[in-house]
C-alpha cells in the first residue's frame, strides 16, 4: 500500500546557493535581474546582498526516501505552493529534506488516479525554517503499479 509512505522523510542535505547556479536559473526563467546577479545592486539593496528567485529551490537536493521509488515518467504536477520566511541569499547554506504528507486515490472520468502530497523544507544551520514547499503530484495507474513492485 502506498499509504504506508505517509510520514516517511529523508535525511537533511546541505545545499549551498551558488552564484553561477542562480545566474543560470534566472536566465532560464527569463528573469536575469540585477537584484539576483549584480553584486553592487545586491549590496545596496534592502537585503544587503543578492537573493535567489522564488522558485530556485527546485534546484536543491532534498535527499531521498528509500521507500519512495518515484519514476521520472508518468507523473503530473498538479499543485505547487511555496511559503517563505524571507528570500534566499546567494552564498548561504540551506539544509533541505522532504516528507510525504499524504497519499490518496480518487476515481474520476479518466479512471483511477492517485495523489501524492510531498513537502520539501529548507532550514538554516540552526534549524530555523527558511522556506517550505508543498507539491501535489498525480500518478497514473502504470506509475502506481510500478511503485508497488
Amino acid at each position: 500500500m502506498l499509504k504506508n509512505l505517509i510520514g516517511k522523510r529523508s535525511d537533511k542535505v546541505k545545499n549551498t546557493i551558488e552564484k553561477g547556479a542562480v545566474r543560470k536559473f534566472a536566465e532560464a526563467i527569463g528573469d536575469p535581474a540585477p537584484i539576483y546577479l549584480d553584486e553592487e545592486v545586491g549590496k545596496n539593496s534592502i537585503y544587503k546582498r543578492n537573493i535567489a528567485p522564488p522558485t530556485f529551490p527546485v534546484t536543491f537536493n532534498y535527499g531521498f526516501i528509500p521507500e519512495m521509488k518515484l519514476p521520472s515518467k508518468g507523473i503530473i504536477h498538479g499543485e505547487q505552493n511555496y511559503h517563505y520566511e524571507r528570500p534566499l541569499f546567494i552564498g548561504e547554506e540551506v539544509y533541505c529534506h522532504m516528507e510525504i504528507k499524504d497519499y490518496y486515490e480518487k476515481t474520476g472520468r479518466n479512471g483511477d488516479m492517485s495523489f501524492l502530497v510531498i513537502n520539501r523544507i529548507g532550514e538554516d544551520e540552526n534549524g530555523n525554517l527558511l522556506f517550505s514547499e508543498n507539491r501535489v503530484v498525480i500518478l497514473n495507474d502504470a506509475v502506481r503499479k510500478g511503485m508497488l513492485v
Binding site: G30, P53, T55, E79, H83, P87
Partner: peptide, 26 residues
C-alpha cells in the same frame, strides 16, 4: 518553468517587499 516565469511580474518590486506565499494549480 511557467511558474518561475510568472514570478518575474514581482521582480521590479523586491526592494519594497518579497513573495511570501506562492500557490499555483496547474
Amino acid at each position: 518553468w511557467t511558474m518561475g516565469n510568472l514570478a518575474k511580474l514581482f521582480t521590479p518590486f523586491l526592494e519594497e517587499g518579497f513573495i511570501q506565499e506562492y500557490s499555483i494549480r496547474f
